[in-house]
Nucleic acid binder design. Structure first.
Lengths: 189, 189
DNA sequence: CGAATTCTTGATACGATTCAAGTGGAGTGG
DNA sequence: CCACTCCACTTGAATCGTATCAAGAATTCG
């Protein structure tokens, strides 16, 4: 499923707690991993108006049989997903919530920039705070207070569904964001 | 790098905090994702005596050109890694530490069983508590106290580098472990 | 056996969740 | 057009979970 918009992959536990495990933006292939895996091990929601295109598995299979270069590129996409997952694990396990949140905004800005979905220092981010709390794995109340920290030090602003980054340097610093962490997209290969 | 033993992938932050992002056991292909990605975005440590075999990327590339079925299988391996990552994200974000720990032991038992590295209800697990704390993303002290909870209710035991599961039912229940979560390994395809 | 690691436990402080209440804005129907 | 409702956001207070500090016990290894 190819995407234009913002979508999320998530799991919900028995008691209804929900954790978002991935965010997808324009140009992402949302469930490509389901092709080798043959299973969808989680749910998908659109978080904005989304246009989607579908690829069917028999076509993908044919690609693996006749187009090795393209196959490696598709493989790469799933492996980039994995790299992002790992970064999220690090953020959840070892960063403060403030730093984790800063890191996510850095990551999203970089990813959206690559696909031309940023405007100067801002991008559309139409989630609710409750949804973002489900991304970061914290409570809604705490999310709100953590967001306030970033706002108070004028690192960024998030009003009427758009995020504006006022102090990229500071945000990168808070996040300990390594700017080359997503360079797979652009590096020559 | 093909493995016999236990190894981990990790990242360390500026202040020295370390987070383990993946555990690998016998039969795993530890850094296969580095083939499409061309980069190693993290470190690897052996956590037990390990025997390793190496595959070089030019051979892998040749496989993608002539062996589509095998290519899909290799791709599958990296995608299973991703599924485990996602489960870890859920565990870190939305489970209690006790439940997270129980979930990890369930996962390891299942994975080790598939490769014949369990003996009845036990398996070799030669990590230190500090290392396990780096897996779960908690402090050493808290790890120890959480472990005590599982020990106290006689769910499992972990002495002299081997884990013995005394009450699988209870462990699965605590973990909300879905026993089919790793069935990619064994299901017919 | 002795030294060094690893494990264990208690106490204190800090961070995060939950509960509760109130504010503000967008949409709806009279 | 206004009043009303619903939902998202915001904030404070109490409680619980987790980190950190500190010290001692047990284990492993040379």
């Amino acid at each position: 499923m190819l995407l234009d918009g913002i979508a999320a992959r998530y799991k919900v536990l028995e008691d209804g707690r929900r954790q978002i495990t991935a965010l997808h933006v324009a140009g992402d292939f949302v469930d490509l991993h389901a092709f080798p895996l043959k299973t969808m091990d989680h749910g998908i929601v659109a978080l904005s108006v989304c246009h989607v295109g579908f690829a069917n598995h028999s076509d993908l299979k044919r690609i693996t049989e006749t187009e090795p270069h393209l196959t490696r590129l598709l493989w790469l996409l799933t492996v980039i997903d994995g790299a992002i997952h790992r970064e999220w694990i690090v953020a959840m396990g070892r960063r403060s919530k403030k730093s984790h949140m800063a890191h996510l905004f850095c990551e999203l800005f970089m990813r959206l920039k690559v696909v031309g979905k940023t405007h100067n220092n801002s991008f559309s981010f139409p989630l609710t705070q409750a949804e973002l709390a489900n991304v970061l794995g914290i409570s809604l109340v705490h999310l709100n207070k953590t967001l306030r920290l970033l706002r108070d030090e004028k690192a960024l602003e998030w009003v009427s569904r758009t995020v504006t980054i006022h102090d990229w340097r500071n945000l990168v610093h808070l996040a300990e964001f390594e700017p080359n962490y997503l360079n797979f997209y652009t590096e020559p290969r």
